[in-house]
């Protein structure tokens, strides 16, 4: 069975992608899936070569044939998403592709057409194949795009007999995150010792419990507020979730990313610690 590991964080900017990148060099039978389709940054560090690039069709959207339209306004009044204005102009970013407008149009002026909502990339990296995607800014249905990235990563894993998939998830708790965590073997939640970090962690933990996923937590930059870090640990104890790592703030981590180096491959002391290697062992199991 494939070992699928997802790295998520309720709050953005906690160091999720830097951590994901830091784990990758320790696996040799890996497929990498960057599911943070709003902010796909993993490849900035991993620097894979693009093997294939293709459009992803998320759903169908209406197109109006104005020669046939008699401006009766039925599509406008029937649309529950306010995606068609009074003067019969479609607001694409509001449309959810339900096709009610096509159905109600008395003159058959509306037809549904495939809509590209993002791009999917197959890349070759020194650590193994990688699938990532980019949502077109302003598009919806990032959940679908995430599901597609995971599906492709699984296909590659089956085909090439690779036993581990590492998934860089997205922040938040909506459909894109739900798509990223369903059916994984392990979830690693990255948080930070701030009032926002704790607040968002609670929501993610709630989500994880709903989906019965095995989860452990990393407190990144824990020494920026020892008291908050302690509060987070206390909360996690109460929830029966292990704090598997506490990573100190180190300006060298930021610097390594600025130099496009994976933090764990530079000589930052933390990444030679026993705790770090125990964590990698846990992921491998």
């Amino acid at each position: 069975m494939i070992n699928e590991i997802v790295i998520i964080s309720g709050k953005g900017g906690t160091g999720k992608t830097s951590l994901t990148a830091s784990i990758i060099p320790y696996f040799n039978d890996l497929v990498i899936a960057d599911c943070d389709v709003d902010a796909p940054d993993l490849n900035i560090l991993i620097q894979g070569d693009t093997v294939e690039e293709k459009d992803f069709i998320g759903f169908q959207r209406p197109i109006i044939n104005y020669d046939k339209c008699n401006y009766c306004g039925l599509c406008h009044t029937s649309c529950n998403f306010n995606a068609i204005s009074e003067d019969i102009i479609i607001n694409e970013s509001a449309c959810e592709g339900c096709k009610v407008c096509e159905y109600v149009c008395p003159t058959n002026a509306i037809t549904m057409h495939d809509t590209v909502i993002g791009k999917i990339f197959h890349r070759k990296t020194v650590f193994g194949p990688m699938i990532d995607a980019r949502l077109i800014p302003g598009e919806e249905s990032s959940g679908k795009l995430v599901a597609e990235v995971r599906k492709l990563a699984r296909e590659v894993a089956y085909k090439e007999n690779r036993n581990t998939i590492i998934i860089d998830g997205s922040p938040g708790i909506a459909c894109n995150v739900i798509s990223a965590i369903t059916g994984v073997s392990k979830a690693i939640i990255v948080t930070e010792p701030t009032i926002s970090g704790l607040h968002d962690l609670k929501k993610v933990v709630h989500l994880i419990k709903m989906f019965s996923v095995e989860a452990k937590v990393i407190i990144n930059k824990y020494d920026l507020s020892l008291s908050k870090a302690k509060e987070i640990k206390k909360y996690l104890d109460l929830m029966g979730i292990e704090t598997i790592l506490e990573i100190p703030f180190d300006i060298e981590i930021v610097n390594s990313i600025s130099n496009l180096q994976i933090p764990s491959t530079t000589n930052i002391p933390f990444f030679t610690s026993k705790k770090w290697f125990e964590f990698i062992e846990y992921l491998r199991k």
Binding site: D38, A39, S93, A94, P137, G138, E139, E140, P171, G172
Partner: peptide, 11 residues
């Protein structure tokens, strides 16, 4: 606003 560039940000 919400982070990112998805439909929530546009809204």
């Amino acid at each position: 606003s919400p982070p990112g560039t998805s439909c929530s940000t546009v809204a």
